[in-house]
């Protein structure tokens, strides 16, 4: 990532907070959205972006995060369906160029990958890591 991007991170749990902090410390401008204010305690001092309290499945919340200006959106809440819905809205309504969604359920992940939503499945990644370690 050579130049600074405008990145929206949806969900500020363990994964979301790590992503938000790292991307922020790399010089990107980052907005992180979470329905619970206490989740922002997960952010450390590396984070210099904005926080929005709200449910990202509500269009007004994405709009207040200026999603239409974003270069990238990462949907990493703990709910597969929220991530898939937000990712589709980001891609099709706000036309964000890079959109990634975390999806735990491998079955759902495959279906949505097949119709063009970039997904990352932690389940699949761990399985692959286990298998790789076994065979090495």
């Amino acid at each position: 990532m050579a130049q600074s991007q405008y990145i929206v991170v949806v969900g500020c749990g363990r994964l979301g907070s790590i992503l938000a902090c790292r991307l922020s410390s790399q010089g990107n401008s980052v907005v992180v959205i979470d329905p619970y204010e206490s989740s922002f305690n997960n952010l450390n001092s590396e984070f210099s972006g904005f926080q929005i309290v709200g449910d990202a499945s509500e269009l007004a919340v994405l709009r207040s995060a200026k999603a239409d200006k974003a270069d990238c959106l990462l949907a990493v809440t703990d709910k597969d369906n929220v991530n898939l819905m937000v990712a589709q809205i980001a891609k099709n309504i706000f036309q964000i160029p890079t959109v990634l969604a975390r999806v735990f359920d491998p079955a759902r992940e495959k279906i949505y990958r097949d119709f063009g939503i970039a997904t990352i499945s932690p389940t699949q990644l761990s399985a692959d890591a286990f298998i790789t370690n076994l065979s090495s």
Partner: peptide
């Protein structure tokens, strides 16, 4: 009661 669940169920 969850919009996201309704959307994903219908799409699948």
């Amino acid at each position: 009661i969850n919009d996201e669940d309704n959307l994903i169920a219908c799409q699948i």
